[in-house]
Design a protein around this nucleic acid. Sequence first.
DNA 1: AATGAATGAGGGTTCATTCAT
DNA 2: AATGAATGAACCCTCATTCAT
Lengths: 218, 218, 218, 218
Amino acid sequence: MSPLTPARQRRKEARPQELLDAALQVFVEKGFAAARTDDVAHRAGVAKGTLYLYFASKEELLEAVIRHYIASEIAAGQEALVAHAGPSAALLREVVVPWWQRLVDSPASGVFKLVITEVRNFPEIAAFYTREVIEPGERVLAGIVQRGIDSGEFRPVDVHHTVYSLLFPLVMLCLHKHSLGPCMDRPMLDPHRFIRDHVELLLAGLLSPGHGAAATPA
Amino acid sequence: MSPLTPARQRRKEARPQELLDAALQVFVEKGFAAARTDDVAHRAGVAKGTLYLYFASKEELLEAVIRHYIASEIAAGQEALVAHAGPSAALLREVVVPWWQRLVDSPASGVFKLVITEVRNFPEIAAFYTREVIEPGERVLAGIVQRGIDSGEFRPVDVHHTVYSLLFPLVMLCLHKHSLGPCMDRPMLDPHRFIRDHVELLLAGLLSPGHGAAATPA
Amino acid sequence: MSPLTPARQRRKEARPQELLDAALQVFVEKGFAAARTDDVAHRAGVAKGTLYLYFASKEELLEAVIRHYIASEIAAGQEALVAHAGPSAALLREVVVPWWQRLVDSPASGVFKLVITEVRNFPEIAAFYTREVIEPGERVLAGIVQRGIDSGEFRPVDVHHTVYSLLFPLVMLCLHKHSLGPCMDRPMLDPHRFIRDHVELLLAGLLSPGHGAAATPA
Amino acid sequence: MSPLTPARQRRKEARPQELLDAALQVFVEKGFAAARTDDVAHRAGVAKGTLYLYFASKEELLEAVIRHYIASEIAAGQEALVAHAGPSAALLREVVVPWWQRLVDSPASGVFKLVITEVRNFPEIAAFYTREVIEPGERVLAGIVQRGIDSGEFRPVDVHHTVYSLLFPLVMLCLHKHSLGPCMDRPMLDPHRFIRDHVELLLAGLLSPGHGAAATPA
DNA sequence: AATGAATGAGGGTTCATTCAT
DNA sequence: AATGAATGAACCCTCATTCAT
């Protein structure tokens, strides 16, 4: 009983990840319904049937894609947060901005499009996304804003709405990257700069008038 | 000798609009690829074949839907704009906010989801949307912001980024209404209040410190 | 109770014939299955529904077309025959040749294509065509040939085969006119001359060596 | 490492031919438009979808059928011709007659019906058939007849018309086999004998009076 | 008698899924 | 484990037929 050679072993273990990567690309580009499993398999370098050795159906592949990339990004976010403390503005500038800058550059940014598009056809995804992304995400940011208010750093704004004024453009940036973006001759926005400017604009609206940190940092 | 009696004539003239309404609903809910022409026809109260008396194909129906609802909303927006003059903050509060409040309540808000979802599969839609929505929309808002800066009402921010910090949350609100929104037990946001608060937050970040209009209006 | 005006009356009485003419054209050009009843109706200058006031179904229209044009041509042939007597060669030259020359010029020539094409799908047509065309047609020509043999004018050939050696090219000429013919840049054959030459060539093979009529007539 | 075992490989290689055979049968029997792809697939012993693994559409299947059977028969004809030399009458009797006798017995004879029926709907087929069948076929037979005239074996007839007096009945025999033939109680013609007798009748009309070969051979 | 909008069954085609190899 | 040929359910679209006007 010879064990699998290392090369083959590595291959076999890498398969699910390769399939997830391929599926993310194809699903985000075409939409789930219009995507062909053939395309996914070929982009992963395997034959159509092989896909079904790892995922029971196209739908389960979709769910696996969404779960996988969301889990990765959440983990990264949590790491970044625990490593930081300090005033709210600094947290936004030094944790939130870089985390979104990294996300918008990664293929995982396509998951937003996938969720927006497919969530009404797959209630499981809605529940998962709400539980794993929306609720914890809002909790984290609401905490930051609330602490800023409590400390006098921020004006006493509506926390809930502020969170979405902050988040929605960052999500839209990711959506744009995978929808209209690729159809345009010239890029509509520079993602990293937009993220930074957007956060600064919000901070300008949030920071208390007498607060020393009001000036935009270099 | 009119060959059609009034009753029948009325039906024939109303059909395209009824089909567009039904198609918008079904396409936004299911996505274009997953939508069945049967569903569209039945929701419009006609049989499958009837749809093809008015639209040459499912794809042309999609394009007609997008063109129709975009054209309507743009017309409404232009009317609102020409009827107004005054400081930029007032324009945002009195024209932009009500226009988006009306839009988010109307079925036409679903077009954003449709465009985001399908634009990569239908280049014609990309061209149309860029030409008819993105470019004029940005032009209008950039004009408002720029005038605010020029008059000293606003701080000298990056106009381009400011426009998208303003717009993206409003678009996301529409997307949310047709994607995760219907899956949630309780509404995540009150649309009209969010629109107002978002614009006020941005204005707080935009208005020049010494400017008298800085205070949120009653 | 005003009677129909003469114009309308005439119109109404002419309808079936106009529909038959249109149907012949469309059926012959496209084939029965590929022909659309819309096309037939519009070519007859009426709306689609009107066709069904005169014919119960597309299939009955087909049968009516075939019956109508065959009946006309057979009647013409019988008239020509009874008006003639004389040697067999003269009958062929003076009755058969002109009858086919007229037929190949008339739209009725398309019926051959229709019958060849559709006979296997519509057994009724097979029975009708065999009974009304094949059998009487062969009887007439076999009679002519047989009389030629009996009188010593013709060599003692196989009558049955001779009939089809005579007829088949004339039928093929009609088929060609409605199939490959219209696709060609230049006409492949001059129909009238081909009919005459074909009959002469056969006569050259039929006539007894010593017979005086062997020479081709001017 | 051949990925396909012999048994499976053999199936895959045989499939196109099996599908062409089935398609020829169904198309000739029903006509192209009335034929159902289901019928073709089932007659080939496969499911409907399998057909589309080998042919892109029903129309391409039609073209493949026509091209395939025509190419086969032309190849056979050319072989027979190059193997022969001698007087024109002998060529007709020893090459043309047997070639048509074989053809009328083979399913390929149905192609004539297919071409006659469909040529007006598919211009590609018209061009192909004219180029590959009509023109070379006429060239070959016109050559035979012309050489007969030049050598004094044949009377100085119109070569072009003679070719079609010769060919048309043979084509009609093939058409008959697939149209009215199957509808008749008793066969109207014995194909092999008719072909022979038809050629002999034409030869009787063609051969010069003084020529020794005038007598029909045993 | 005539119209033509509406119907819905039918057929071409696609593609997720299976399974023999 | 991997393949890819085969399957057949599903869906877009057409068009013969109907019927309200």
